[in-house]
Design a protein around this nucleic acid. Structure first.
Lengths: 143, 143
DNA sequence: GCAATAATTAGAATAATTCTAAAAAAGGGC
DNA sequence: GCCCTTTTTTAGAATTATTCTAATTATTGC
């Protein structure tokens, strides 16, 4: 429920930078995501958010998540047609989706590998972002 | 509308292998995807399929696409929450999504790069598949 | 503190996809 | 080729995550 001052500052700065206002709800949603660093869906964020702010609405949760994505404070993770998940880890990383447990695990990626991926793009293509999703069985789900 | 014999054989074999039947509709959907090698949505596949088979239903299009994916004859491409797209290119490749034109372009990937991506997985993780999506501006959309 | 603007809210609307149950088609044995 | 069983197709209803709408509330700059 409480946003550490450094994150509060980061949030406020990012919002101001994009001409948006700082609100209790945005702060709360950001703190919810930072508190448990997994990959919750909007519904899960909503459920967690209501614990500390019972009157928040689902639409606001969607709005806040959208704002946090726009301001690059969180990332969006999509796996096939499943509900979108939200991720506060901003380092270079890929997502590993375990078909068995359904869990999503962050896989840290060396900058060099990202560079190599950028390097295979044909002339004239420029990417602002690369999304990498592994799909298989995680360590907990092996015999 | 016509499926080249080699593809017909591949389809029949894949279907038999998975204990499924060969049908006019499955054959037709497969041929539609092979004819124009882009990344159509289910709706677009439906529209194209009706040209040669006006009585086909949307549910069947979805069913057939599902079957073709299960039998690894085509791939599914998801970009954020947009409608799923379908891709008959089975080589190692990533997808480049152009924010400007909305176009999806196949980016061929060296096996070695896939190997490196597999190599960064922690002990105990095994991936059957890696999905790579670039997001930026394609060569046609640069100044 | 006031006006102007932006954000939140509840509930309706949307859109891709899946489900359902009935009709049609395939494949195997004769 | 014909019957039987199983699978597939079909039309339309249902689902579900998400977005939209319009009214209320909060925030910011003065």
């Amino acid at each position: 429920m409480n946003l550490a001052p450094e994150y509060k500052a980061r949030l406020d700065e990012a919002l101001e930078h994009s001409g948006q206002r700082s609100t209790k709800q945005r702060e709360h949603i950001f703190s919810v995501l930072l508190e448990k660093r997994d990959h919750p869906t909007a519904d899960e964020v909503y459920a967690r958010a209501r614990e500390g702010m019972p009157s928040i609405s689902l639409a606001t949760v969607y709005n806040c998540l959208e704002t946090l994505i726009e301001t690059s404070l969180i990332r969006q993770v999509n796996f096939e047609r499943e509900p979108t998940r939200y991720c506060p880890n901003l380092t270079n990383h890929a997502h590993f989706y375990c078909r068995e447990s359904g869990e999503i695990v962050d896989i840290e990626l060396p900058d060099e590998l990202i560079g190599q991926l950028m390097a295979v793009l044909p002339e004239g293509f420029s990417a602002s972002h690369i999304d990498i999703a592994y799909d298989g069985k995680c360590n907990c789900c092996h015999d």
